[in-house]
Design a protein around this nucleic acid. Structure first.
Lengths: 141, 141
DNA sequence: GCGTAATTGCAAGTGTTTTGCGTTTATGGT
DNA sequence: ACCATAAACGCAAAACACTTGCAATTACGC
């Protein structure tokens, strides 16, 4: 009997050699509740307990490095973050009018990376890629 | 007899209802000379005549809006810019070690956008996308 | 419980981009 | 060529995103 693939933040933190602190758990819970990538500002606002912004930045850095969360760049001034564990690599589509963000899943990214590597003249490996689409959502159309 | 598709910055500016000023021409020439997207800082340094940074930012904004240049986001702190006119849409691959940036051309982006639009549940159109790859170049491998 | 290294808070600093405002300049009409 | 005027510019200051140094606190293995 398989246990359901529940996300255990404590285990994830321990696995990353990070201390389990209330602040980090709180940040991860904010990301968990969010349906799309959130900014540092938004994380700060949604936190049930106030955390110093330096602490948030440092937590985010640690969580990013250990792969628990993912940094998302949408061409805005600041970066956004989303939970990485428990989710597969995916892309986003952003409405240029209202800012709505939707996930795009099941794109064959491996194929894409292979193709790009073949086209490149001076690269030997690809580790990652970011692919973001910008358009207009149905509500704004 | 076809005239070669030379880039005329003055015409482009006039076509965008922008004044033709030495500053803007200078900025465009910096971008023209550059082989990869450049930061505002880099633009400022490469300028043959010193321009106030506010002026650079405002020029960049105008040039972006009129589609003469393109904003490129590589997950760094600031944004980069490249000439849009005279080039076709393309992607980039960035070396995580040395920062080298190479253009990736001839990716079938239209196909990709069509596919993504089909997968999306709440979007009705796609205007643009950004696709950046991160890896290691041969020199750094 | 205790010791220690990791984490946090605070204050200050850096880098990027924006805003307000008064001056200068490009350009269309004469 | 001149003039009017809207656009562009320079300067100073501010807003915003993020980083750093350091001292105080806390998680966690023993």
């Amino acid at each position: 009997m398989k246990t359901s693939p529940r996300i255990d933040f404590k285990d994830a933190l321990r696995g990353a050699n990070s201390k389990v602190t209330p602040g980090r758990i709180a940040i991860l819970n904010v990301l968990k509740k969010s349906t799309s990538p959130v900014s540092v500002q938004q994380i700060s606002e949604k936190l049930p307990v106030k955390l110093n912004q330096t602490t948030i930045y440092r937590a985010i850095e640690a969580l990013s490095l250990s792969g628990i969360i993912r940094k998302i760049d949408l061409g805005e001034t600041g970066s956004r973050y989303e939970l990485s564990m428990g989710t597969t690599h995916h892309h986003h589509i952003i409405c240029k009018k209202c800012g709505k963000i939707e996930d795009i899943k099941n794109c064959d990214s491996d194929e894409l990376e292979k193709l790009v590597l073949k086209k490149s003249v001076s690269f030997s490996s690809i580790q990652d890629h970011s692919l973001e689409f910008f358009g207009v959502c149905k509500k704004c159309a």
